[in-house]
Nucleic acid binder design. Structure first.
Lengths: 265, 265
DNA sequence: GCGTAAATCG
DNA sequence: CGATTTACGC
């Protein structure tokens, strides 16, 4: 069977529950990974997810900020929670579906100054990546593993609107790109979106709220990723990867667009 | 001609501008006195008032809190602003329509403790009433004068849901009732709502947001008043006074209902 | 409960 | 810009 999987930084799941339902219906998503749900487990709109056909839930919520969740049409089995956040934020949630281990992350943004000594938020971001890389180094590369979420790094020259300018801005600094590359190499992960739309095609999944018209200002970044392990990559359905940019133009949207892929499992 | 006049504590005129338009249209109001507009003069939705046929405006706004306004179908002439608020809040606005001087007040609520020495908010409320009474004592009783607004006092036994209980609660304490009575006697004002619905009929114009169902809990207070001077009282159209309680049951309502009367001017 | 505000974050 | 938080008033 084919599993359609989406990752989406929703920026408040309660505020945008109708958009989630619309997206799930229009896209035919079977497994939805959410970041920035901004609510506790208690406050999560369980009924709405049942109504949209994704009744199987793993919720990693907390009060107000951050928060991640997995909602699925198929039953979810357990997977190890990696607990990578040293600040205790709800930034990791995991589940196993059809033998595929899914790790959903909301990786810290890292503040403005790209200096670990001067900016604790940047240090926290790097620390999160280092812990994740250390974990991946200990794992069986043949396992069917998927990492996805808001990674808050746009790695490639064509993942940012202006490479030279962005090299000094957190999300595209050389040290971040090296850190992300180290993680990717540690697990020999495939970046399913970039593989489907090779360089030099410009791609983005996030556009700031600050622009009047996000398409006109055209300053997007590709921060949201779906990565597959060598054991899982053969299951990726060729030509199925998508960034759902039109969703960013809906009324009162999240600043992130959903990103999806189909897996033959 | 007959002038239909309404006073309404709107609790944010911007948030409830559609309800204002609906009320004005359904009630046929010609002169609308608003309290708690919660915006500056700049932020006041002038166009919406033009569209609802009340283009003549006197706005006493301020940032965020309080704020009063008069909106009229007929042109407004000047009237003295009484400037009764020692704290500089926007709580008084006035205008003259068809020779009737209208004074619209949002009188301080007064906090929880009914003690002038211990509670500066209560002192402020009493001070406001004393200044207003002192002003009225200096005035010609034959003038056509109307006082209206949110007075934040429910004077009579049948203006509260439980007289004995409420005697200890700010809005119905003996010292407040005496203070209000002193003002009323100073100007020999008629209370047009109570005159139209004499004791022992229970009346209310405000119900707390805290109750689930304001009608079921039935703990209303009559805080909103329209008073006419001896020179104006003969103009009150008999049987025209109304408390528009159904408005309190609209979607996301103000906690106050509109109160209206017709004047033959 | 339901409005404001200011500060914080992204 | 737009989502939180806390504090406050009624």
């Amino acid at each position: 069977m084919t599993l359609r999987l989406t990752t989406w930084n929703i920026n408040s799941v309660r505020l945008r529950i109708d958009q989630v339902a619309r997206y799930v219906s229009e896209s035919g998503t079977d497994v939805l990974l959410l970041q920035e749900i901004k609510c506790t487990d208690d406050q999560f709109p369980v009924r709405a997810f049942e109504d949209m056909g994704l009744p199987h839930l793993k919720i990693g919520g907390q009060k107000g900020w951050h928060g991640v969740a997995i909602a699925s049409r198929l039953p979810l089995e357990e997977a190890p929670n990696l607990g990578l956040c040293r600040e205790g934020h709800a930034r990791c949630v995991s589940a196993t579906v059809k033998g595929v281990e899914i790790q959903n992350f909301y990786i810290p943004a890292g503040g403005d100054l790209p200096d670990r000594a001067l900016n604790p938020k940047f240090d926290h971001k790097m620390d999160f990546y280092e812990r994740l890389t250390a974990h991946i180094e200990r794992r069986d590369p043949d396992a069917r593993l998927l990492l996805a979420g808001d990674f808050n790094i746009a790695p490639g020259e064509f993942d940012v609107w202006n490479h030279r300018y962005m090299l000094k801005i957190v999300s595209h600094t050389p040290v971040e790109i090296e850190t992300l590359t180290r993680l990717q190499q540690a697990g020999r992960f495939s970046d399913v979106i970039r593989d489907a739309f090779p360089d030099p095609e410009k791609l983005a999944s996030w556009w700031s709220y600050r622009a009047q018209d996000f398409r006109k200002s055209n300053r997007g970044l590709r921060l949201d990723h779906i990565w597959t392990s060598p054991g899982l990559t053969p299951a990726v359905v060729p030509g199925s990867a998508r960034i759902h940019e039109p969703v960013r133009a809906w009324e009162r949207p999240s600043d992130h667009a959903p990103v999806s892929v189909d897996l033959d499992v």
